[in-house]
Design a protein around this nucleic acid. Structure first.
Length: 491
RNA sequence: CGGGAUGUAGCGUAGCCCGGUUAUCGCGCCUGGUUUGGGACCAGGAGGUCGCAAGUUCGAAUCUUGCCAUCCCGACCA
């Protein structure tokens, strides 16, 4: 852990911003609350996106694309939904600009006011369900399993690179089913897909669970989630999958004829993960030297840095490096050879550590004489010499080991930071001094949940799936409780 | 929207309290050379509406007022 829990929140913000900006992933832009994702950051997102997309397709989904703009009236059709999003919507009111008659630049043409305002989508349920109404007539049209990769806008009051920007990239799946059971199954299936992705590819263990009513998605019957733990002891919601019941079907009048020729409303789900996952990745794995990216999604898994004196030795090392690169590529390893003459080896070492490249190979004439390369792993910062013979296979194995080690380390940290609290004083003390998830009894009421949030800033992150039942008493109200739930302070 | 802070070159900054030559320093950038096993060195060079506007003054980066923007904390949220 690179930052102690006792240090101030501002220090984390600074640490985190430095990682994002100096690590070359993204930066603030000219637009308030919006970020520029730089090529390196986008390459990371693309790797994550491609893998997720593959997993969606393996579970029977297809991609489509729906409009960025949503007529205002659509948003208000589902009461809870509009209630949840109204406060953070960007609204398009006009469609034309004109030169200021007073010669002061350009102004909005007052004559170009839209009949009905358009909302820049904060999420796409409404426009999609409006469309689904036309697509669904019979049970033969079901299930409808569609995903879209898109950007959405939520006008947050306070933003943070990747974790909460005004505009962000995500995917949103929207499915329609003939039965409640099938829809619930889909909701759980996608939560599992997310969990598998985050654990296997991002090397980040997550807790699968169900949200309480107050943390539920606006318009959902049930919200399933995966919750991850960051190094400062705060939790982060890494993905959500919603069982929407028939709420949207009823709001948008989406009915179908069953085999028995009965007219019924369809059952819906929606699920999404966003570029916020990159924020999770950064906060969970990085150290004070910079990012540490899991090999499976790192833009470059290996960087080769040549160490040469003069043009003559450069040519020799280039040849060898190209040979190594070819053998690594044969095994599907993403490798970069940096023989840029403008910066020296030391600078490159530091730079690639900052950028979190999992493995670095350094090679000079001395190594070539001994038929070895210097190999350094980012996760543990260990350096050693590796024989040229079987190098590619050994690097591949090392990448697997790093991936596993990162996961194990994160898992050990999380395991260490799930703590039972059996009374209020213990609960508060744990939150303040240790952080992490706190497993405690709760009486099941929204009132108690609110009070706990007001007093401690901790929220119920989830009720874990397959939570074991256990009689006890609520830590705040003292009322009887049948199970523990997970509390944490969260991003 | 409340509280706090900050705006000076691409980035980070000094100067401001106490107004006075040509606005300081570092990084980065450009040119040439020497270098290259953990963020090189020497020499030369380019780069500025001091956030914007008004005011006070012989004179404003510096004082006054207004505005704007950004960051951090809070509320809101993925």
């Amino acid at each position: 852990m690179s930052k102690e829990l006792t240090s101030r929140e501002e220090d984390y913000s600074q640490w985190y911003n430095d990682l994002v900006i100096k690590g070359g992933l993204a930066d603030y832009s000219a637009v308030r609350g919006c970020m520029v994702i730089k090529p390196y950051g986008f390459a990371l997102w693309e790797n994550m996106r491609d893998q997720l997309d593959k997993m969606f397709k393996e579970t029977g989904h297809v991609n489509a694309y729906f409009p960025l703009f949503i007529p205002k009236s659509f948003l208000s059709k589902e009461a809870a939904h509009v209630e949840g999003f109204a406060k953070e919507c960007a609204v398009v009111t006009h469609y034309r600009l004109m030169n200021d008659p007073n010669g002061k630049g350009i102004i909005v043409d007052p004559d170009a006011k839209l009949e009905e305002e358009l909302i820049v989508r904060p999420t796409s349920e409404t426009i999609i369900w409006h469309t689904y109404k036309d697509w669904i007539q019979s049970y033969r049209d079901l299930p409808l399993l569609i995903n879209q990769w898109a950007n959405v806008v939520r006008w947050e009051m306070r933003t943070r690179l990747f974790l909460r920007t005004a505009e962000f990239l995500w995917q949103e799946g929207h499915t329609a089913h003939a039965t409640k059971e099938e829809a619930i199954e889909e909701t759980e299936k996608m939560m599992n897909v997310y969990a598998d992705f985050v654990e296997e590819f991002m090397a980040l263990p997550v807790i699968k669970g169900v949200k309480t009513a107050s943390e539920r998605f606006a318009g959902a019957v049930d919200t399933y989630c995966i919750e991850a733990l960051m190094q400062d002891g705060k939790a982060l919601q890494a993905g959500t999958s919603h069982f929407l019941g028939q709420n949207f079907a009823k709001a948008f009048d989406v009915q179908f004829l069953t085999k028995e020729n009965k007219l019924e409303y369809v059952w819906a789900t929606s699920w999404g993960v966003s570029t916020r996952l990159i924020g999770a990745l950064i906060m969970a794995h990085s150290d004070d030297q910079g990012l540490i990216l899991p090999p499976k999604i790192a833009p470059f898994q290996v960087v080769i840095v040549p160490i040469y004196k003069g043009e003559e030795s450069k040519v020799i090392i280039d040849a060898k490096a190209n040979e190594i690169m070819a053998s690594l590529k044969t095994l599907g390893i993403r490798v970069k050879y940096d023989n840029n003459d403008h910066s020296r080896p030391g600078w490159k070492f530091a730079q690639y550590e900052l950028q979190g490249v999992p493995v670095r190979l350094a090679m000079g004439l001395r190594d070539m004489e001994n038929n070895v390369v210097e190999i350094a792993r980012r996760d543990t910062k260990e350096k050693s010499s590796m024989l040229m013979e079987g190098l590619a296979e050994n690097v591949k194995n090392l990448l697997d080991e790093i991936q596993q080690n990162m996961y194990n380390k994160a898992l050990a940290f999380r395991t260490e930071h799930i703590t039972n609290a059996d009374n209020w004083d213990e609960f508060v003390k744990l939150l303040d001094e240790k952080g992490g998830f706190i497993s405690a009894h709760w009486d099941g009421t929204a009132e108690t949940e609110d009070k706990i949030k007001d007093q401690t800033k901790a929220t119920i992150r989830c009720i874990p799936i397959d939570n074991k039942l256990e009689d006890g008493f609520c830590i705040l109200s003292g009322s009887p409780s049948v199970q523990r739930v997970l509390f944490a302070r969260a991003y």
